[in-house]
Write a protein that binds this DNA or RNA. Sequence first.
DNA 1: TCGCGGCCGGGAAGCGCTCTCTGGGACTTT
DNA 2: AAAGTCCCAGAGAGCGCTTCCCGGCCGCGA
Lengths: 327, 327
Amino acid sequence: MSRATVSRVINGVRNVDPKLHEIVWQAVDATGYVPNRAARSLVTRRSGTVALVVSDAVSHDDDPFMRRFFADPFFGRIVGGVMSVLRPKGIQLALQIVGTQQARTRLVGDLGQGQADGAVVLSLHPDDTLPQQLCDAGIAAALVGRPAQPVPISYVDLANDAGGALAAEHLLGRGCTRLGMITGPAHVPASQDRLTGFRQALARHGHAWFPTVEGGFTYESGESAMLALISQHPGLEGVFVANDLMAQGALMALRTRDVRVPDDIAVIGFDDSSAALDARPQLTTVRHPLEDMAAETTRLVLARIDDPSLRVESVIFDPKLVVRQSA
Amino acid sequence: MSRATVSRVINGVRNVDPKLHEIVWQAVDATGYVPNRAARSLVTRRSGTVALVVSDAVSHDDDPFMRRFFADPFFGRIVGGVMSVLRPKGIQLALQIVGTQQARTRLVGDLGQGQADGAVVLSLHPDDTLPQQLCDAGIAAALVGRPAQPVPISYVDLANDAGGALAAEHLLGRGCTRLGMITGPAHVPASQDRLTGFRQALARHGHAWFPTVEGGFTYESGESAMLALISQHPGLEGVFVANDLMAQGALMALRTRDVRVPDDIAVIGFDDSSAALDARPQLTTVRHPLEDMAAETTRLVLARIDDPSLRVESVIFDPKLVVRQSA
DNA sequence: TCGCGGCCGGGAAGCGCTCTCTGGGACTTT
DNA sequence: AAAGTCCCAGAGAGCGCTTCCCGGCCGCGA
């Protein structure tokens, strides 16, 4: 029997005599034959791999930021989401971290040459050029989170502003009138949107202004932000915190000041991460379906690999409020 | 100029005329040439890839365990450690999750055939057959954490028992006499070792027995374990908790009972994860250098790829006590 | 019975690269 | 000056696979 026939059977193309078909599979099982991926890639010009690219401005791995980044559930949840769609299809995941401009250019070259068929991109830097480069090179790619600058590339994002609005409505619905917010870093798009949504919802209800303190998405920054907030604005009844980790810190701050939650001050977090469940009282929070979003991003990439002529697409997920004890 | 010469220049073999050398690199820069990885792999039989394999008994990705696993810093920290040694060498990381026995067999086949040059393995299941399979197939691999069953495969582990001893000595050194422990799941080797080390150190100081409660490495289990511990053993002066997350929960439990830490009860955690810094008071804990260990595991794999005749090796890291506020 | 059309299997090319082998040029040695 | 030596560039094979193309076989219709 010729290699050609075997190849046809294994790839399931064209009608091959069922008897031969059977014989081939038996032989494969018996000998434990595994096709050589490199050889196959060489001729099909497909690698059967999707890259998960983390693009940042950090060049060395021992950088504390990178350490934090990997230790943060954010990264793992995205990996989990991507894997959940790749695994059933037998597609490989290759992880790529690019910090320098040189690395970015190199990555685009490698990708363009077929190292991976497509890329799921996490662009962490506000003026990251990677999305544009990917786009120019015609690589099947999609971002998790909207690009900081307008680039014709597919992406999946969360309606962060709607999440902020959800928090506002809930707080208002509880009867809290004097509200405040602990925001994320001002330069992060998601932070901005959460603030905007919260602000607009309050404005619709006639609340023209509310105090804010900027945090850094860390436990400690949430703690100190809350301390600052309550000392400067003693009458506060409700606080929206831009992520759960900060909210957990905020809760601790309130506890040390003997402020009861939610009776004295109601607190709403954002993300519905494990920190929300680990906080006491458990956090009422806005659910950020990161796994689902990463999965959807991956599907977008896969679709584009199948049909490169597909137009650029964006999918916006709606956040949901998860009511627990803190508000 | 022939392809052979170009190949030699790019791979830096043999003495090539410096002038030609220069010309080639100029041409490469000018045309943006990127070597085809598949073609290169085909002939060199090297993929330039190392796989990070997570081997577990879970077959579907939506499994809550897998979700937890990815969201846990454990996974990310290992990825970070592996990347830190792979990245400078330009080696790719391919992520593989294998849940079923079939997937394991398939993985070994793929690896044996050259899909990756080696594997860093996270074996999560006590009677996982993967280490043995990898070993039988002669694949360059090493485990993070010792194998549950004796298998001639390289691994990197932490001297968990020494960590337990460190905690015991510190607690004793503070003058705490009536000690207790919140352990991890009994079937996890690392849990057992931490308990054993703690017990033996106490025994050396004449403490024949101490109360223990088994937890599940989660915040909530730490919280309820601590509640159980102090209600059953009111005179406790110090508690060793088998990981930081449980310790954080334990701290919260003590706080709700108005037990002062460390004055009434001293608490020591394990891992030195972000939970240790986010706890109030900040946790005194045993540092688990997971990134460094993952990096070392990767180096072991790389060494074995370079020289398959290398003998099986194990590297045991020593834990260090990080003294903060809780003990 | 012969011719034609439709399928199925095999031959062979070739994907892009590395590497051995060989030829030739330059330099050294006798 | 001739022969030997050494080193560098090019020719070409071949890695393992897919796929185009073609030949042959079978079935159906005339």
